[in-house]
């Protein structure tokens, strides 16, 4: 790892100030991606601003059907919150299958979405749940937040502080996990609202990161059932190909995972 300077933030305001004063700085949350990346010398921030212990960024609040999750809340905390499981068990289940137990004890929801790894689980949930990403300076709709591979709408120095969403009537998530890394080779999050609106978000498969599948949304709006997906075609031309799976294999996985997510919803 290259040399770096560590700072611990005590509040959101403090974090932003420390980050502004830093040169090529980065926010550090659980560090489950950033520290391994720095160990490999693939990232070399001059300064790290640790936001893991910022009190306003921690914890889960459920008020009626409105859910608010602080950005520094760990995957373990999301997975084990009874309050959250009562209104949206799909996101609890998603969090319980990220990485391994040790990663879940450290990694955070804010870190995951700010990193926007194309194979991460949370971006699909944020997009399908039509979540709002709250930062130190504004609110961003999930649909505008995830802009490409490891790219988001965040400005330089902007800090994700929380996410919020309305719990849906139905939701399900299933992924085909890479056998070594447990990242999603393809993961699909399905959501149905009381008013009948349906959203289907796919992670791990798109060559431009997480995306909504409009064909599946139309089919499931007409008939909320796994069978409704049988005749939907998934275009492989915009999907990732790598050593683990080519685009046509991933296209098939999108459909299979969508059916399984529907069965779980």
């Amino acid at each position: 790892m290259y040399e770096t300077h560590y700072h611990r933030a005590s509040s959101i305001q403090d974090a932003v100030k420390l980050r502004q004063a830093a040169g090529e700085g980065k926010y550090l949350s659980g560090g489950m991606t950033l520290i391994p990346t720095m160990k490999q010398r693939l990232a070399a921030p001059t300064d790290l601003v640790d936001v893991r212990q910022v009190p306003e960024m921690k914890g889960i609040g459920v008020s009626g059907r409105t859910v608010r999750i602080g950005a520094a809340t760990t995957h373990f905390e999301v997975a084990s919150s009874a309050e959250l499981a009562a209104v949206c068990p799909a996101i609890s289940g998603l969090a319980s299958h990220i990485g391994d137990p040790h990663v879940r004890h450290m990694g955070t929801i804010g870190g995951s979405i700010a990193n926007n790894d194309p194979a991460a689980d949370y971006p699909s949930a944020m997009l399908a749940l039509d979540a709002t990403i709250i930062t130190d300076r504004r609110e961003i709709a999930a649909g505008d937040f995830f802009t490409g591979l490891f790219e988001t709408a965040l400005e330089d120095g902007e800090l994700v502080t929380a996410i919020t969403f309305e719990a849906p009537a139905k939701a399900g998530y299933q992924k085909f996990a890479n056998p070594a890394s447990r990242y999603a080779m393809t993961g699909v999050f399905v959501v149905r609202r009381d008013n009948g609106d349906v959203r289907v978000a796919v992670t791990g498969a798109g060559s431009n990161g997480v995306f909504r599948h409009k064909g599946m949304e139309a089919a499931l709006s007409a008939n909320w059932s796994p069978d409704a997906l049988v005749n939907v075609t998934v275009d492989a031309s915009d999907l990732l190909s790598d050593i683990h799976a080519d685009a046509s294999y991933r296209a098939n996985l999108v459909k299979v995972m969508a059916k399984r997510a529907m069965a779980a919803a």
């Binding site: 391994p36 640790d50 373990f76």
Partner: peptide, 12 residues
């Protein structure tokens, strides 16, 4: 809580 001490800075 269990965690990987190789993926966390001593300062953290």
């Amino acid at each position: 809580r269990s965690m990987k001490s190789c993926s966390t800075l001593a300062a953290q």
